Amino acid sequence: MDVGTESKLYIGKYEVVSFLGRGGMAETYRCRHHGIGGFEKHVVVKRIRPEFAQETLYVQMFLDEARLHGVLNHSNIAQVFEIDEADGIPFMAMEYVDGPTLTEVYRKASAQKRIHFGHLARVVSGIAMGLDYVHNASSMDGKPLGLVHRDVSPGNIMVNMDGVPKLLDFGVAKAVDRMVDETQGGGLKGKVRYMAPEQIARGETSPLSDVYSLGVTLFVVTTGKLPYVGATDAELMTEIVDGRAVSPSELDPDYPRDLERIVKWAIHTNPAKRLPNGRMFHSVLDKFIAEGGGYSTEQEYLDWLAALFPTADSYGVESPPLSLMSEGGSSGTGSAKDVRAAVV
């Protein structure tokens, strides 16, 4: 059924357009922000799941993420605009990235036999610059944040249709002044298959851990495989710690040797022998793009993206229709709890 003005759903001042997804602690919605003079802007609203809204630890973790992410201002980092609450449930309003994840980019390029090493290197190069900014970021009063993302992976990278890659999701980021100790809740933080060996073996994370994760990301989106063959997390962790990575050229004899050297440097088992920082990662990838086997102009890259994703409905998660979302919802400034009930 059609949704009239009187039955629109809101989270705070943000009109819900569609449900995007749900994670372990939070859920996300595509929303519309209205202003005077016909102003409209799409945003992503991420809010803590209602069942955790009274759990002090979960709320503090969510607020930590919003506070740390909100300080960051870089073209390769999805922006946080504000944090607020609706019906006692905290939420943050973030930049809406109109485009696919890097996972979707790889899958579409692979399916269409359009894998281009230089274009994919461009995406990773942009994220490397974003990470370098994150690792050197300071608080509003100039104190180093000591940020480590700890969850760099293709699914946490999006590419807008202007070709700009954006790093998302600072939910498990490490920082010197997090209010919730990173060890609370137990377990390793991040995805095992992208974790650095020092994190698995000793629980140590640093900017070099993020460099490693980005190196694995580059390996995955240029080969379609992980650098390890373990079938379980336990097997993967053993192989990662032992440094038993396969070479990209073992999977693809035509893999560019210049790019292979970069990948191997980024995922070196010994952090002291790894690519030293995101800026250097960006620099060597840009050289590969300009001079090596991955030659790619910006226009060629944009044309490639446009060919892979000719329309907005060729990427992204399918969302429940608004007619479904309106059932059981409320009107006006409807409660966040109503929104959840309507989309589940």
Score class of each variant (00 low, 15 high):
residue 38 G to P: 01
residue 46 K to I: 02
residue 28 T to Y: 00
residue 62 F to Q: 08
residue 42 H to S: 06
residue 39 F to S: 11
residue 18 S to V: 02
residue 19 F to A: 06
residue 58 Y to S: 10
residue 61 M to Q: 15
residue 22 R to M: 13
residue 32 R to S: 04
residue 51 E to P: 03
residue 46 K to N: 06
residue 41 K to C: 05
residue 52 F to V: 00
residue 46 K to F: 02
residue 34 H to L: 07
residue 59 V to L: 10
residue 38 G to Y: 07
residue 56 T to Y: 11
residue 64 D to Q: 03
residue 23 G to N: 14
residue 31 C to K: 02
residue 44 V to M: 00
residue 40 E to W: 01
residue 39 F to M: 08
residue 41 K to I: 00
residue 40 E to L: 01
residue 49 R to L: 15
residue 33 H to C: 06
residue 15 E to H: 01
residue 61 M to C: 11
residue 57 L to F: 12
residue 47 R to L: 13
residue 49 R to K: 14
residue 56 T to K: 15
residue 22 R to A: 15
residue 34 H to V: 05
residue 48 I to G: 10
residue 49 R to M: 13
residue 18 S to Q: 03
residue 17 V to Y: 08
residue 38 G to V: 05
residue 44 V to D: 00
residue 53 A to G: 07
residue 34 H to G: 04
residue 52 F to M: 12
residue 28 T to A: 15
residue 28 T to E: 03
residue 23 G to W: 14
residue 29 Y to I: 04
residue 57 L to G: 07
residue 47 R to N: 11
residue 33 H to V: 01
residue 26 A to H: 10
residue 40 E to H: 09
residue 56 T to A: 14
residue 52 F to S: 05
residue 25 M to P: 06
residue 34 H to T: 02
residue 58 Y to L: 07
residue 37 G to R: 08
residue 57 L to H: 14
residue 34 H to M: 06
residue 23 G to M: 14
residue 63 L to R: 15
residue 54 Q to G: 11
residue 16 V to F: 09
residue 46 K to C: 10
residue 64 D to E: 12
residue 26 A to Q: 12
residue 64 D to M: 08
residue 18 S to Y: 04
residue 20 L to G: 02
residue 52 F to N: 07
residue 54 Q to R: 10
residue 38 G to K: 13
residue 29 Y to E: 08
residue 64 D to W: 07
residue 30 R to L: 12
residue 55 E to Q: 11
residue 17 V to C: 02
residue 41 K to Y: 01
residue 55 E to T: 01
residue 32 R to K: 06
residue 40 E to N: 05
residue 41 K to Q: 06
residue 48 I to K: 09
residue 28 T to K: 09
residue 36 I to F: 05
residue 36 I to C: 01
residue 23 G to I: 13
residue 50 P to N: 09
residue 48 I to Y: 03
residue 41 K to G: 01
residue 50 P to T: 12
residue 55 E to I: 05
residue 60 Q to W: 06
residue 31 C to L: 00
residue 49 R to N: 09
